[in-house]
Amino acid sequence: MNRYQFVDDHQRRHGVKRLCEILGLARSSFYYWRRTAAARAARQAVEAGIAARIRKAHQDSDGTYGAPRITAELRDEGGPAVNHKRVARIMRTNGLEGVRLRRRHCTTVADQAASKAPDLIGRDFTAAKVNRKYVGDITYLPVSGAKPLYLATVIDLASRRLGHRRPHADGTRHRRPDGG
């Protein structure tokens, strides 16, 4: 029950003015609500008919269709024109949902028997000099219609820039111990 209905139900006993003051309503709002009751009832009757059509279309699709497909179904079968936003709102109020087909990519399957990588920097993400400490990360990037991409980055902790090795003063590059 809303406040306007309460005022309407108790107005003979207590009066509209007094009830509106107690409930913090403007009397003009109450009278507007009462004046538009017939239009509201007609709109609710139309929405009840649309809700029945939506339930039938949803049931015919075995509960898989969402608002866009149900809107298309309602337009195909004729009847009053229905906007997709109205269909979505009515479906929401009636607890109807379509099935969302989203594939989840499992990017990593951890080997429980494998040893964990050691924490070489001891959770200390600060560095006094450039090119002393690096950290890395890998990110999964979904791409529609193609295989997923992976982005790996290495960041220098002192400069917070993407890592790259600068050449030595004599022009030669840093070499890894394995020759890479």
Rank of each mutant, 00 (worst) to 15 (best):
18 R>P: 01
98 G>S: 01
22 I>R: 09
161 R>V: 03
82 V>S: 00
170 D>V: 11
96 L>M: 11
53 R>K: 07
178 D>N: 15
173 R>Q: 13
42 A>K: 02
17 K>M: 06
157 L>K: 05
107 T>F: 09
120 L>I: 14
49 G>N: 11
140 Y>P: 11
5 Q>V: 12
9 D>V: 08
111 D>T: 09
140 Y>A: 13
85 K>G: 15
155 I>H: 01
94 N>R: 07
136 G>Q: 09
98 G>L: 06
48 A>Q: 13
130 V>G: 01
142 P>R: 13
99 V>E: 07
90 I>C: 01
151 L>Q: 14
73 E>T: 15
7 V>I: 15
53 R>A: 12
96 L>E: 03
175 R>E: 10
45 A>D: 03
112 Q>E: 15
122 G>F: 10
58 H>R: 06
36 T>N: 10
147 K>P: 06
122 G>Y: 07
72 A>D: 10
113 A>W: 01
115 S>W: 02
129 K>N: 13
125 F>Y: 13
45 A>V: 00
127 A>F: 02
58 H>D: 09
48 A>F: 00
122 G>Q: 04
103 R>Y: 10
177 P>T: 12
81 A>M: 08
62 D>M: 11
89 R>L: 08
115 S>R: 13
62 D>A: 12
16 V>H: 02
43 R>W: 00
130 V>Q: 14
113 A>R: 12
20 C>E: 08
46 V>W: 00
10 H>E: 11
158 A>T: 07
96 L>R: 04
132 R>V: 15
15 G>C: 09
35 R>M: 07
2 N>F: 02
8 D>M: 11
36 T>L: 01
67 A>C: 08
167 P>A: 10
37 A>Q: 09
7 V>P: 03
147 K>L: 14
105 H>W: 14
135 V>E: 03
87 V>E: 01
82 V>M: 05
168 H>S: 04
159 S>H: 05
45 A>K: 00
131 N>S: 12
14 H>Y: 15
77 E>T: 14
149 L>W: 09
92 R>Y: 06
90 I>Q: 00
111 D>Q: 07
6 F>N: 01
43 R>T: 04
149 L>F: 08
136 G>Y: 05
67 A>R: 04
88 A>G: 09
150 Y>D: 07
141 L>D: 06
44 Q>S: 10
171 G>P: 10
81 A>F: 05
167 P>L: 04
51 A>E: 03
176 R>L: 14
101 L>D: 10
12 R>A: 13
90 I>V: 11
105 H>Q: 06
60 D>Y: 03
19 L>H: 05
109 V>W: 00
132 R>K: 11
15 G>E: 06
44 Q>W: 00
76 D>L: 09
127 A>Y: 10
4 Y>F: 15
56 K>P: 01
164 H>M: 15
26 A>N: 14
153 T>Q: 04
73 E>I: 10
39 A>M: 03
76 D>Y: 02
13 R>T: 15
126 T>E: 14
35 R>I: 03
96 L>G: 10
12 R>S: 12
135 V>W: 01
26 A>I: 00
169 A>P: 04
152 A>C: 12
5 Q>H: 02
61 S>L: 05
160 R>S: 12
89 R>W: 08
97 E>F: 05
157 L>D: 05
147 K>N: 14
104 R>H: 14
28 S>G: 07
24 G>W: 06
90 I>R: 02
110 A>E: 14
79 G>L: 05
65 Y>N: 06
133 K>Y: 06
